[in-house]
Design a binder for these strands. Structure first.
Lengths: 195, 195, 195, 195
DNA sequence: GATGAATGAGCTTTCATTCAT
DNA sequence: AATGAATGAAAGCTCATTCAT
């Protein structure tokens, strides 16, 4: 595929991400996306063979983006406690500057199984992201900072918590800014996970 | 409304809950529900004015059910730590015997804003459930068992965590039975929230 | 299915038969048919689950109609030679008063394999018609009137010939009326098939 | 037009013939043909102004091919009876080595009037083929071998019969090989047409 | 000549909702 | 209360054809 075509694919994904996240998967039509991009409906299909496939490529794209951010944290020489906080900061920062990403993850990817069933079974499509969390956890355990428990229990706590907070924020239920919860949350998470 | 009509409404809600939770809101048609109940499409509209309203009544029904369970726990004279564990047990038990309920909450209610916008703003429709969590938290704080932090941060931790675990379980990603995580999770949650 | 619904199904089939035969399968839209019947597009699908299925039911309907006519001839006590002529007459008469039927058979059924592949394999959907030709042939052979040759060779001659003539007629290539060929054709066919 | 361009046109026609015959005219896309030829969609239009025109040129090409074969037979000094048999042999042989040709004739040309309406009215596009049959017939009559009947009646018999047999063969309904019917069919045809 | 992105009209099918019975 | 035929507005997707490069 040409450089140019790849660029355009990303443009489409960016736009679709926005629309899906804000309006929902089924309530956003291919026509909506095409219109927002000022291109024709038919041409959309030169880039993505179906609406489902578009949705699948988007989640991979998001997972790649977040995975990259976490990778940088994992590769830094911060302490486990500092890493914990950094992860939360990155997550919340993303939720603030690219809220669509987190929204997409929580509301589109996690909730529309039918759409992702075929090519995203298990966690294939969010692999890059999950892997980094796994690395964070296992290194923390090895250093003796984190308690050696079932990974999924730890993962559920961490990600469930962050997802829940971003969700509450999105619903405008939180009385304060997301940022102002970073202290509390870092404290809670580390307290829960530490050895 | 007659007793009989109310009974039938609940029958419809039960059935719709099942279908929505397993197939998704937009991928379940009124016809699917009618067929499963062996009643006519037209008659469905004698009980619920629209598909959206049906979905809204279902979430209220679920919130009422779970709220009632929590209320019993709150009214018992268990310690805060024991209550924490009980709540987790109730949540997981529900996820096992009525998985549709939790699924509906996580995948239908939380993800399809458009559907619940009108009459479920804020958390009106899950009021009964949230209120009990609030009571659990505030009593724990008053007794000096739980640290006095922002309620939403605590709520996000608790519910995000549980939701995350049930989600992972539903995706068949967890290597073990949900029950076997109760110890870990109770420990983590209480560790995080305790004073 | 109610009597009334069955009647309407036949109305739709009649109309679709007309349109398919005159305009072709792919060039006739469901909308065209609905419009001709002054009904909505959506309602069409309450009677036939898909365009393909509609086409399949039509060919069965035609086969039934022609099969019935042939059955009457087979059950009469005419001589084989007279039956031969009668069959040709019935075929041509149908081609004149219900030309759509023969056209549908020749141009829609025989030419659009994709459409009929699923449920009309072999000759299932034209079974009733073919069976009567088979009876005509076998009885003729038994009586010693027709030469005992491979059925399909005889069938190909008879039906290919008739089809070809109706085709030429439809193309307005024949200089004379179809009827005026009955003598020639009866003579040719009987000459070819007779013992 | 350059020699080279003409060669390429024939390449395209060969390929399109294959695809149209096997998949149908409307179910074969210009893209399918281009892909099979490893050329671009746009370039196809440098050779044929439209899909319809491509289809029309193909039928002329087929008619020319078969007409040539028949011409050779007509110009030989065989008896009428032998010519009859030869024609059948050539037709069946073509059906065996280039089945697409006969299929195209039967299923694409004869059934999609809309496509050939413009430039193939009457039998213009199959002129070369029909002319040879006409010569065969008229010479046979002149020699006193064939009965002097309406040409179209004879043509319908001959071509309808052959078409029907090839059709049955294509549908895999015939229990035996096409070749093994040559005797029967030659006998039947000559019996029917002879003086 | 060659490419393939772009267009846009059009098609089949679906479905929430209404309404006559 | 109950039925299910009827409506009609979309939606996803396809494809012949054009056009800039």
């Amino acid at each position: 595929m040409s450089e140019k075509k790849q660029k355009k694919k990303e443009l489409i994904m960016d736009c679709a991400l926005d629309l899906f996240a804000s309006k929902g998967f089924y309530t956003t039509t291919i026509g909506d996306i095409a219109q927002a991009l000022k291109m024709s409906v038919g041409n959309m299909y030169n880039y993505f063979k179906s609406k489902d496939i578009l949705a699948q490529e988007i989640i991979r794209y998001i997972s790649g983006y977040l995975g990259q951010k976490l990778k940088e944290i994992n590769e830094s020489d911060l302490s486990t406690e500092e890493k914990t906080r950094k992860i939360i900061e990155v997550y919340f920062k993303t939720a603030q500057i690219k809220p669509e990403m987190i929204d997409y993850f929580l509301r589109i990817y996690l909730s529309n199984r039918e759409v992702f069933k075929e090519s995203c079974e298990g966690m294939i499509c969010v692999n890059e992201f999950v892997t980094e969390i796994m690395i964070y956890f296992e290194e923390g355990v090895q250093k003796g900072d984190l308690r050696d428990q079932d990974f999924f229990s730890a993962f559920g706590l961490f990600m469930g918590y962050l997802g829940g907070m971003v969700f509450l924020n999105g619903e405008k239920i939180l009385p304060k800014d997301l940022d102002s919860y970073v202290d509390d949350i870092s404290f809670n998470v580390y307290k829960a996970l530490s050895a």
